[in-house]
């Protein structure tokens, strides 16, 4: 019974990993830009949710879309203000630029909100429910469902719509896309906006059950990187598979071997996958 609960918890955590990695897949995978500020995007979204709830008294049904909107704008601004220029340089410039951006976002937040930990009331979405002897937190279940919905939605957008084709065309070959009449800048700004908006949804949902502090992004970012890389750059379903896999493996390792070693197993698995499939689980060779 306990084991079933362990696996279930792992699955739900994995869904959260997938959720906050989906935006990164879009940005990193499609545009080949590493965003070191990704964790801090999540953090900003959590503060948007917090402020919306405490100051404006908005419930989750409002603050999740609000966070998505705010982050969409942040993404577009960051693209036009920084990324567009940085992309002209080598990959190192992206590391430099987004790392600097991460520091600015993190510590501007500390400046405004102080280093204190805050949180949303834990049962905004209702109390724990027991189902067949398994305990389920509504907020985590909602986050899990959102992860699945976002993944399917993004995948459909990219593979089934004209807009998606254009996004992919720009990602594939910028100059070729220009030749067929696609203006790359608005497309890439849109990709950044969408990626950041997904991150916004993720952050606002995570805020429902996690603590909020300016440093919170740091602890989440590394896992997102591993999820995206393991799943294969630019593969939205890959991020979901990788997120769930990592969540369940972490949970089982923590339970059987000890929580101090969970990342050993995750990183070792990650390296092993790279050895046999250098393009990630679902990435294209």
């Amino acid at each position: 019974m306990i084991l079933a609960q362990v696996v279930l918890n792992g699955f739900l955590v994995g869904a959260v990993y997938a959720l906050f990695s989906s935006g990164l897949t879009l940005i990193w995978g499609m545009m080949n830009v590493v965003n070191f500020a990704h964790g801090d995007f999540v953090m900003i979204a959590m503060y948007v949710a917090f402020v919306a709830f405490t100051a404006l008294h908005l419930g989750p049904a409002f603050f999740v879309p609000l966070a998505a909107l705010v982050l969409f704008m942040l993404g577009v601004v960051v693209y036009y203000g920084l990324v567009r220029h940085v992309m002209r340089g080598p990959m190192l410039a992206q590391i430099l630029g987004t790392f600097g951006l991460a520091l600015v976002l993190r510590y501007a937040t500390l400046w405004i909100f102080s280093a204190n930990f805050v949180s949303l009331p834990e049962n905004l979405l209702g109390d724990v429910v027991t189902f067949a002897g398994l305990r389920l937190e509504p907020s985590r279940v909602v986050a899990g469902i959102a992860a699945l919905t976002l993944t399917v939605g993004l995948h459909m957008l990219l593979t089934r719509t004209a807009l998606g084709s254009r996004l992919l065309a720009v990602a594939e070959d910028r100059s070729a896309a220009m030749l067929v009449g696609i203006r790359p800048d608005p497309m890439q700004a849109l990709a950044w906006g969408l990626g950041a908006a997904c991150t916004g949804v993720a952050g606002a949902l995570i805020a429902l059950f996690f603590y909020i502090s300016p440093m919170v992004g740091e602890s989440l970012a590394l896992i997102a990187f591993v999820v995206v890389c393991l799943g294969g750059f630019g593969s939205v379903p890959g991020a979901l598979v990788a997120g769930l896999t990592i969540g369940i493996i972490e949970s089982l390792t923590s339970f059987w071997i000890g929580p101090a070693f969970k990342d050993v197993v995750v990183f070792a698995l990650f390296l092993a996958v790279l050895w046999f499939r250098p393009q990630g689980l679902l990435g294209k060779a």
Binding site: G81, L82, L96, F99, G100, L101, Y107
Partner: peptide, 9 residues
């Protein structure tokens, strides 16, 4: 951070 961003930009 702002100075790093500025230089990379």
């Amino acid at each position: 951070g702002a100075i790093i961003v500025f230089i990379s930009r």
